[in-house]
Amino acid sequence: MTFPRASLGSWALMLPLLVVILAVVSWPLAYTVGLSFTDAGLVASSGNFVGAQNYLSAMSDRGVRAAFYNTAWFTLVSVSLELVLGVLVGLLLNQEFRGRTLLRAMMILPWALPTVVNAILWRLIYNPEYGALNSALLQLGIIDSYQSWLGRPDSAMMAMVVADVWKNFPIVGLICLAALQSVPRDTQAAAIVDGAGPLARFRFVIWPYLAGPLMIALVLRTIEAFKVFDIIWVMTRGGPANSTRTMSILVYQEAFSFQRAGSGASLALTVTLVIMVLAGAYVSIMRRSALRA
C-alpha cells in the first residue's frame, strides 16, 4: 500500500471531484425530485406541494405516452441498426486489404462531426425540393418524384434514425474491430484446421471476444439514444404532428416553453428512471461477464 492511512488520504484526493459532482449533479437531482411533487413555475412561483399528481397525470396523458413511444422506437431501431452495421463493418475492417488503414481512419469522421452539424447536414440532404437525397434518388431512377422525408409522420422518424445511425455506427464498428483484433490467431487457425465453417467460427471463436465490448456499445448507445435531444431539435423540433417528439423534447417544452417546472421535473425523472433500469441491467450483465472471464 502506498498510503499509510489508505482510506483517509485517498478520500482527501477524491474530495475535489466529489464536491463538483455533489454541487452540479447530486444537488440538482435532489432539487428536481422535490420539484416534481409541486406545481412550481419556472420563474414566477415556487409552487405548492401536489403529491404524486404530476406523475399520475403524466401517465394518463396521450402526448406523454406518444413521446415515450417515439423515444423507445427511436432507441430500439437506431441502436439495433448501429450494432448490426457495426459488427459487419468490424468484420470487414478486420480483413486484410489494401487501403485498410485509411478506411479505419475515415471511420472516426462521422463520430467526430458535432451532433448539431450532423443534424443540419442531414436536414439539408432531406430538403424536399433542393435536398441531395431527392435529387440523387431521382437521377438514379429509384424514385419518380421528389419525396417529403421530414414532412411525413411515417418517414420523419426513420429519416432521423438514418442520420443518427450514420453518425454512430462507425464508432460501434471500431469498438468491434478492437475486439476482433484481440482474437488470437492460432485459435482461428485451429478452428479452420478443425473444419469449422464461417458461421461456426463466428459463433464459437469470435463471438466470445465480441460479446463483452458489444454489450458496452449496446448500453452506451441505448443511454445516448434515450436521451436524444440535439438532432431532433435541429431537424424537426418534434414535428410533423409531434411524430418525432421524444421525451427530452417534451420535457424541454413542458419546463421551459410552458414554464411548468414541476410537471417538467416529473417527466424528466421518469426518463431518468427508465435509463437507470437500463443501466442496472448493464451493470449486472457486466458483472456477470466479468465473473465469467
Binding site: 477524491m14 452540479v24 432539487y31 428536481t32 420539484l35 419556472l42 435531444f229 420535457v251 421535473a265 451493470v283
Partner: peptide, 22 residues
C-alpha cells in the same frame, strides 16, 4: 475505492433535462 468511480460514472445516465431546471 473503485466503487466510488462506478458511482460517479452513473451520472452519465442522467438526462440533462433532469438537472436543467435547478
Amino acid at each position: 475505492l473503485e466503487w466510488s468511480l462506478y458511482a460517479l460514472i452513473l451520472t452519465y445516465m442522467l438526462p440533462p433535462v433532469a438537472l436543467a431546471v435547478p
